[in-house]
Design a protein around this nucleic acid. Structure first.
Length: 403
RNA sequence: GGCCCUAUGGUCAAGCGGUCAAGACGUCGCCCUCUCAAGGCGGAAACAGGAGUUCGAUUCUCCUUAGGGUCACCA
């Protein structure tokens, strides 16, 4: 199989030699090297076409001697080559800018560029779609197609996607693979959607597209020529949009593995957690840290009980907490409605603002200034026993601030 | 360095001779509100510079500038 391929490339390369569009080159690596160092200051670059016009006898002799050789493409010395790209339009290059590139290496393998043309043709490729970094090699390709008498494919060069620094994304340079992005917690659908919007824009400016919709709406005319910067913020927005658009049940199924991981042996209220997480999540891998406080009691600074907007202070908290504990401990039904009513009633009875009781309760229950969900939801998830313990701990913290 | 490409807010990006120069992300403010989100409303923010062509240039041409790509017996 492999050797069949190799002889295929070889025969095509030799066909070109027959046609006078390629030639054998016996130059040594050393000569090529010294050529390179010489040309650095002279301005001229590339191979000097030394073997391009070897005398027939010389060629015969070298071939017969079994000297290693490569086959090079014989570029026209004059004129220019023009091609049309579906997005970049008409591009012209002077032929004398083109180097007599190697087609077949001395080990018998074709170079990438040569194999590319042969493969595309033998596979009857009609449209070549690739990144615009290949724009400058099109003339070489076309000269090959032309030499063979083959039909030139339609070229569609896409603008590059670059990093924050404006440079092409590459393996060495901040590239992230699709799989990496998925591992980071982005949904495949969101990634596809976002990337499609880089360098392409539909006539109506719409942004959210499923893959089938993309296929239906895509049009080459919407492709832009300038490179675009990969923006994680925007990707996150797309991801969040997809997350929020999901059916609650589907969302729960999606995050369940991560919840299982976060909660371990502990039981948890999946539907409620899903409800809290769905509008707050931008990336799947945030789940762990978002729910961590529910499984592990946090140590926190009692200063957290202070909050201006909620009109909560350590003092007010100290007076509210005992009453909240009291009233909650007598609750027989532990659910959103019952807890809500109990706490609201407490606020009313004490003539306090809602926030003045909710804030300290939430802080004591979570140990965090910011939580997904409010005091009520957190209490529900924690369960009565754990909730009351945490509230008690919070009260202790206020009573004995420590050193 | 040669050649090629590109150039509208911080980012993506409409525009294709006449617009108060869209929209989205982000950002800022307000509302909603038991924190944070989500949601609603509003604000700031751009045609790289210079010559032309034209009655009129973001739009067409040229130059400059700036960025990028590419220059292997790599793929």
């Amino acid at each position: 199989m492999q050797s069949q391929r190799l002889s295929l490339y070889r025969s095509f390369a030799e066909e070109l030699v027959q046609k006078g569009r390629a030639y054998f080159c016996f130059c040594s690596r050393e000569r090529l090297e010294s050529l390179k160092s010489q040309t650095e200051d002279s301005g001229f670059s590339g191979y000097d076409r030394h073997c391009r016009d070897l005398p027939a006898e010389e060629l015969e002799r070298l071939l017969a001697s079994g000297a290693p050789y490569v086959i090079r493409q014989k570029m026209p010395l004059t004129g220019s080559t023009t091609f049309t790209d579906a997005v970049f339009g008409s591009i012209t290059v002077e032929n004398n800018e083109l180097e007599d590139q190697v087609l077949l290496k001395s080990d018998g393998f074709p170079t990438y560029n040569f194999a590319n043309v042969i493969d595309d043709h033998t596979m009857a490729i009609t449209h070549v779609v690739r990144g615009s970094e290949y724009l400058s090699s099109v003339p070489k390709y076309n000269l090959l197609y032309e030499a063979f008498g083959w039909e030139i494919p339609t070229y569609v060069h896409l603008p590059l996607i670059v990093g924050q620094d404006g440079r092409k994304l590459s393996k060495r340079h901040g590239s992230t693979s699709f799989d990496d992005l998925v591992a980071e917690g982005y949904l495949p659908e969101a990634i596809v959607n976002y990337i499609a919007m880089l360098g392409w824009c539909p006539a109506d400016n719409r942004e959210i597209f499923s893959l089938p919709e993309l296929c239906r709406n895509f049009d080459i005319s919407g492709i832009s020529k300038s490179p675009s910067v990969f923006d994680y913020d925007k990707l996150s927005w797309f991801n969040a949009e997809y997350l929020r658009a999901m059916q609650p049940a589907d969302f729960l199924e999606l995050i369940r593995p991560r919840l299982d991981l976060a909660f371990g042996e502990m039981e948890y209220d999946g539907p409620l957690l899903a409800e809290l997480l769905q509008p707050r999540l931008t990336k799947l891998n945030q789940i762990g840290e978002m729910v961590g406080f529910l499984t592990v009691r946090q140590t926190y600074d009692p200063a957290l009980f202070s909050n201006k907007k909620s009109k909560s202070t350590p003092e007010s908290a100290m007076s509210v907490l005992p009453k909240a504990i009291e009233i909650l401990s007598h609750l027989s039904d532990w659910n959103r409605a019952s807890i809500h009513d109990a706490l609201m009633k407490l606020a009313e009875r004490l003539d306090l603002k809602t926030g003045q009781v909710m804030w300290p309760v939430r802080i004591a229950a979570s140990g965090q200034a910011v939580t997904p969900g409010g005091a009520i939801e957190i209490l529900v998830i924690l369960g009565k026993a754990e909730s009351l313990e945490r509230l008690g701990i919070g009260l202790d913290l206020l009573t004995n601030p420590g050193p």
